[in-house]
Every structure is written in structure tokens, then in C-alpha cells.
Design a protein around this nucleic acid. Structure first.
Lengths: 112, 112
DNA sequence: ATCTTGGATCGATATTCATCGATGCAGGGA
DNA sequence: TCCCTGCATCGATGAATATCGATCCAAGAT
């Protein structure tokens, strides 16, 4: 049985995916189905510390409300974590969730 | 360095993702950002042979044009392969592409 | 208390997308 | 040749989404 896959979504190679499982899996993919959100994840993946909202707007070339919108979607998908420090909001990558997604996509380890 | 990641898209953990790379990666995720397409991939992943279009409509509960629409998106993303056999069109899973995606998502192997 | 600043929410808008009926098209009989 | 069948494309429609300006709220600082 897979280990981290349950932390994210059902593996693509599982015997028979229920409609609910397919929806849950699609929801995680949908969170990553935007270039800006891919870049957010990439920025967080390459940063050792959490990053505050104000540091995203410039590399993304987006307004602050739009950045908040994308961050909210990634948090809702379980891929990011939010932490408030005084006036600032810091976001960090949930690397276990990303690992779970990788396991769910991998047909070799995730299912068979 | 990663091996199969290039066959799909740039890894999420790469040093610095360009806008073009982020778009390419998001495009693959977008192909899987639909419950019906997730189920199509799951059906193909659990089937040893390729599957013809007519076999998808019933388990998906979709009309034939809609199924063709989804299949076309998955082929365009490089995840499926199409083969014509007489009157029928058979689709199969490109398991190497899915493996490449898994490698791109995996922060351990894909980038570090 | 007032001002400033960071960030979330709201409202509006333009674009993308999923879905299906109708149609077109190619291949295989009869 | 004509019909039938499987599949792709077209056109239309309703829903979801990305984006931003304006606004609101909370937390410090003066």
C-alpha cells in the first residue's frame, strides 16, 4: 500500500477510482493548473524559509489581490501552509503533500 | 540530474523556473484538472490494452463528443496516444510521460 | 486616537472551459 | 452504389476562473 498518497489523493493507478476520489485528485491538479501558481510553488520549493505575500508580487508581476487569490487556492488544496507573524502573512510549502502527489502520479510505486 | 522529467515538463523544484517552463508545467496539470480526465487516465492505467472511444462513454456517463473532447486534451498534453484501427480509435496511456510528471513533482529526486 | 501598512474580501469583467446536439467524414459491409 | 457505424468537428450555452480596483480589517507606530 502507498504511504504518503493518502495525504494527498488517490493514486492514478489504483484498481478502480471512485467518482469522489477522481474529484479529489482533480482538485489538487486544478490547484497547479495555472502558471502563476506553479511559479509560487517553485519559489517556495527553492526557498528554505517561508515567504511573505509582499515578496510574490514582484517576481509574478501580479497585483496583491491576485496573489492572495492564488495563495488561497493553494492553501485550500492542502499544498501550502499559512502563518501569520504580526502584520505579515507567511506561506510555506507542504512538502509532504507534494510528495503525496508525486506518489499518486507514479504508476510504479503508488499503485501496483 | 533528472532523467524522465524532460519528457514532460520542468521539475517544480528546479533552481529557477522560467515563465515558459511554468506555462508548460501548468499545461500538463491542466490536462489532469478534470475529474473525468482523471478517470480516463485511471481506466487506461488499469487496462493492459488500449481502449476505444466507445468504451469510455458508459463508465464516464458522458456523451461521445464530450469524451472525444477530453481525449483530445489528454493527447495534446502528451499523456495519451491515439491509434486508428479501421473504424475505431484506440487510446493508450503514455506511461513514460506520467513517470516524467511524477519526477517533476517529486522534490527529492527531480531537483535536489 | 490617528495614521500607516500588509493582506484579505468584494464586485465587476473578460476569458476559458465543459457539455451536448447536430453535422460531417471515413471505413466496412451488403 | 448505398447504408450503417464510430468518431471528430462545429456552434451554442452555461458555468467556472483569472484579474484588478476599491474597500475593509487588523496590527504597529507616533
Amino acid at each position: 500500500m502507498a504511504t504518503a498518497a493518502a495525504a494527498c489523493c488517490a493514486p492514478l493507478g489504483s484498481a478502480s477510482l471512485s467518482d469522489t476520489e477522481a474529484e479529489a485528485t482533480a482538485r489538487v491538479f486544478k490547484a497547479l493548473a495555472d502558471p502563476h501558481r506553479v511559479k509560487i510553488v517553485n519559489l517556495l520549493a527553492t526557498s528554505p524559509d517561508s515567504v511573505c505575500v509582499c515578496e510574490f508580487t514582484e517576481p509574478l508581476g501580479l497585483s496583491q489581490p491576485t496573489v492572495s487569490h492564488h495563495l488561497k487556492k493553494l492553501v485550500a488544496a492542502g499544498l501550502l501552509e499559512r502563518e501569520q507573524r504580526g502584520t505579515w502573512a507567511y506561506y510555506s510549502l507542504r512538502r509532504d503533500a507534494l510528495g503525496g502527489l508525486a506518489a499518486a502520479v507514479d504508476l510504479q510505486g503508488g499503485s501496483r
